[in-house]
């Protein structure tokens, strides 16, 4: 189990493999990131924030080494967050409590695993996928599930911690951390893998806060 690439996106900036790729200037940072990455994928604009962040962070990872050489069902998707689809859930509730009608285009994004669906569609990936909910970033959960995947003969896993939370003051907190794992070969034990994973995210979070003066 070895992390071969990682990316991290928040409203302040985007990182790839620990390096700052760009900082965002505007409120519309997701669109800014889309333009920075020179994406041409109109479906992007219909997505919720979780899916947008995930698609962007995956593009970042693929910008330095495509995953297209893998078989179309070889890559397992392993994602998690704390707040499920709460950000879109609140918008959907607003559509029927305040705007007169439940919105079908919001409703279809009121499940966290829709983001893995968007990734699968974008990249034509047919592999295994699971979405977990954990009270906070849970490196042990990832380490354990990656170990299971390796024991079952899996080879590659794209993992993500992607969260979007609206608080009572309507402030949105968003974060997307992706890491690509080669499952075979290196047989690092699960607890040291989990520690390394925690350290990686901690560094991203620190680095990110250092660039937040905009």
């Amino acid at each position: 189990m070895k992390i071969t690439a990682s990316s991290y996106i928040t409203p302040t900036g985007a990182f790839l493999n620990g390096q700052l790729k760009f900082t965002f200037q505007s409120e519309n940072w997701l669109k800014e990131s889309y333009q920075q990455l020179e994406l041409d994928y109109p479906k992007f604009h219909k997505m919720d924030h979780l899916s947008k962040m995930t698609v962007l962070a995956t593009e970042l990872i693929q910008s330095e080494g495509s995953l297209s050489e893998l078989k179309d069902d070889e890559l397992e998707l392993l994602f998690a967050n704390t707040n499920a689809s709460q950000h879109t859930d609140m918008k959907f509730i607003e559509s029927y409590t305040q705007q007169g009608n439940p919105s079908p285009s919001l409703f279809v994004y009121t499940l966290p695993n829709i983001l893995t669906g968007e990734l699968a569609i974008r990249n034509k990936w047919y592999g295994e996928n699971t979405f977990f909910i954990a009270p906070q970033f849970d490196s042990n959960l990832f380490a354990e599930r990656l170990y299971h995947a390796s024991q079952k003969g899996g080879t590659w896993c794209l993992c993500g911690w992607v969260d979007s939370k609206v608080d009572e003051k309507n402030q949105v907190t968003e974060e997307c951390f992706l890491f690509l794992v080669a499952l075979n070969g290196n047989t690092a034990d699960r607890s040291s893998f989990a520690s390394a994973l925690n350290e990686l995210l901690t560094n991203y979070r620190k680095g990110n806060s250092g660039n937040s003066n905009r």
Partner: peptide, 11 residues
């Protein structure tokens, strides 16, 4: 057991 995505449409 196993899982697989359709890679087709979200809904």
């Amino acid at each position: 057991g196993a899982s697989s995505n359709d890679a087709n449409h979200i809904s």
